[in-house]
Amino acid sequence: MTMENKEVQKAQTQAVEGNAERMERRPVYLPATDVYERDDALVVVADMPGVTEKDIEINLDNDVLTLTGRAEFAEPAGFDALYGEFEAGQYERVFTLSEDVDREGIKATIKNGVLRVTLPKSEKVKPRKITVQAE
């Protein structure tokens, strides 16, 4: 396995956006994401504050992994907005994976607004120790 096909590349955003326009007027955020590779799996960790497990969608189409999270955010009633830096919106991130992921074993959890996706490597690419036997 060469370095190039191991690497996780950020897919072009066109994959999600294309030329199609969005119907709803919600901001789309690019979540800050960490990606690292363990011996047995690829791990993707993305910040999605305000997103719960029911508002998350993970899609793997061929080798394109799409993470989508809808952050709902209730504005308090009877208050004036004094200052604002964030609002309800949609988190979206697309990655192209190498083909060596075990699709059945993909796991995702969300805790404290952080999404964590574990993509196990398929058996054939896991590092294997081969013992050389003396004759």
Partner: peptide, 16 residues
């Protein structure tokens, strides 16, 4: 984010 009325301030902070 900050909201306020005559009696109270509400703050929300993103701390994932």
């Amino acid at each position: 984010n900050l909201w306020g009325n005559a009696d109270e301030v509400r703050v929300a902070a993103e701390l994932p």
